[in-house]
């Protein structure tokens, strides 16, 4: 963003990479895939880079509204200084926070999750999927809580899978009834409380039972949890973000 600003320009959209997208190895792959798509669709986008900081979501869900608002107000200051109008992010937690919790703090933007953005690009034919490498393959989709129930986004990710010409097989619990991966509410950063089972193992068993060869994810935390779950349940189902699936199908 700083480079655009130095030239006196502002890009069409700010890609809010998020902490996972910046640092987590699996999520970095998603970041790269999404950027490949943005480039191939000739989208002018910027990132905050070193000026980006955590939205504050895990702090807020862990009970620290003070730290959350420190992060939020700092980020809003930065984004407002660059005149950001539209934000896209690959993380449903960043998406939820910026969309729902920033406006009352002075951060008003059009906020899109990358699955919504990608669906638009596909509909406008700004990216084309050819060859149909997923044609006839069975793909299941895991609804992230902060995209689905929290914000009612159920269809955009499924539209993308349809465009891949793959067969969507739904898990027993999906959409409004989808089972959490176990990472939300700051659980990602702690051991779970004692119980009979890990939540991600329970979810992975449902993934395995769906008969799909790929489970599409749309959240960096779900991605990690489902991947761990697949290992724990000795499953060969691949866990991939929808952006990665598009990159594969379009051979970018």
């Amino acid at each position: 963003m700083a480079e655009y600003a130095a030239e006196g320009k502002s890009p069409e959209v700010l890609f809010f990479v998020g902490c996972a997208g910046s640092f987590d190895q699996r999520a970095q792959q998603v970041t790269k895939a999404f950027v490949k798509i943005l480039n191939s669709a000739n989208i002018s986008f910027g990132v905050l880079g070193k000026e980006e900081t955590c939205t504050g979501d895990p702090a807020k869900r862990a009970g620290n509204d003070f730290l959350f608002q420190m992060q939020a107000l700092t980020t809003i200051e930065t984004m407002n200084a660059y005149g950001v109008k539209k934000v896209v992010t690959t993380c449903p937690h960043c998406f939820n926070t910026i969309k729902n919790e920033y406006p009352s703090l002075g951060g008003n933007y059009e906020v899109l999750h990358h699955t919504q953005f990608l669906k638009q690009l596909l509909e406008e034919n700004r990216i084309q999927i050819e060859g149909g490498s997923f044609k006839g393959k069975k793909i299941t989709y895991h609804d992230p809580c902060y995209l689905g129930r929290a914000n009612g986004v159920y269809e955009a990710p499924r539209e993308i899978i349809k465009k891949l010409e793959a067969e969507i097989v739904e898990m027993k619990r999906c959409k409004k009834n989808a089972l959490c991966c176990g990472a939300g509410g700051a659980q990602m950063f702690k051991e779970s409380e004692s119980g009979k089972k890990e939540i991600n193992h329970e979810r992975s068993e449902e993934v395995n039972a769906s008969g799909a060869s790929v489970v599409a994810a749309a959240c960096p935390f779900c991605n990690v949890m489902l991947n761990d779950g697949a290992t724990a349940t000795d499953s060969s189902v691949e866990v991939k973000d929808l952006a990665q699936l598009i990159v594969e199908a379009a051979d970018l």
């Binding site: 640092f23 955590c54 504050g56 895990p58 702090a59 862990a62 950063f189």
Partner: peptide
């Protein structure tokens, strides 16, 4: 563990 996560956010701007 959550305290560490929050300290990380405070110091590094990321939960890690």
């Amino acid at each position: 563990e959550l305290n560490s996560m929050m300290t990380n956010i405070e110091n590094n701007g990321a939960p890690w």
